[in-house]
């Protein structure tokens, strides 16, 4: 089936097998290897991209169902040579080791910063909370990091959130 997506600002029209995930479309057909496959079941977050500005697990999205969507991957975060503040902060805070979860962490953090409202640890759901380390940790828990870089990931995001 033919579908058209905006990927990192560029229109892409692709003929896809309905079985193909958005993640496989990005990685195998569009050569955008930044989005990672860690589990293929929405359990690790390595595939996180922004779909119409909101973070989503691209492994659980069928490419056909994304027709007409605007996709931002980690390759689209920087402004030319100028890194996105999250990317720069991740480098400065050593917020990654192997780097495999990193694109998903970055896209997730970029989406998360645009998600006000309460989280599971917010004391009062009526009040939009400040992004304390505890709030960041809860909101970033959909992105597993087996190297255990969470402490640095949280400090990197906290710096950008300030």
């Amino acid at each position: 089936m033919d579908i058209t997506l905006q990927v990192n600002g560029l229109p892409r029209t692709v003929d896809v097998d309905p079985r193909m995930s958005l993640l496989d479309l990005l990685r195998e057909r569009l050569g955008l290897i930044g989005s990672k496959k860690g589990c293929d079941h929405g359990q690790c977050g390595a595939c996180t991209v922004l779909v119409d500005g909101r973070r989503a697990n691209s492994c659980l999205a069928l490419a056909v169902a994304m027709d007409g969507s605007e996709i931002t991957t980690v390759e689209g975060l920087a402004n030319g040579d100028e890194l996105h503040p999250l990317q720069a902060a991740f480098i400065e805070h050593d917020a990654f080791q192997c780097g495999y979860c990193t694109p998903g962490q970055l896209c997730s953090a970029a989406g998360m910063l645009g998600e006000p409202g309460p989280s599971a640890v917010t004391p009062d759901v009526l009040v939009d909370p400040d992004l304390t380390p505890e709030e960041i940790r809860e909101r970033m828990s959909g992105n597993l990091c087996r190297c255990g870089a969470y402490v640095n990931i949280v400090s990197a995001i906290a710096e950008v959130a300030r």
Partner: peptide, 22 residues
């Protein structure tokens, strides 16, 4: 000093085994 490969890792350009264009 920061990680030498930091920039390719945060921009999604670091190439892992399955990702070489062949």
């Amino acid at each position: 000093m920061n990680r030498v490969e930091g920039r390719v890792k945060v921009t999604g350009l670091a190439t892992y085994a399955a990702e070489y264009p062949v």
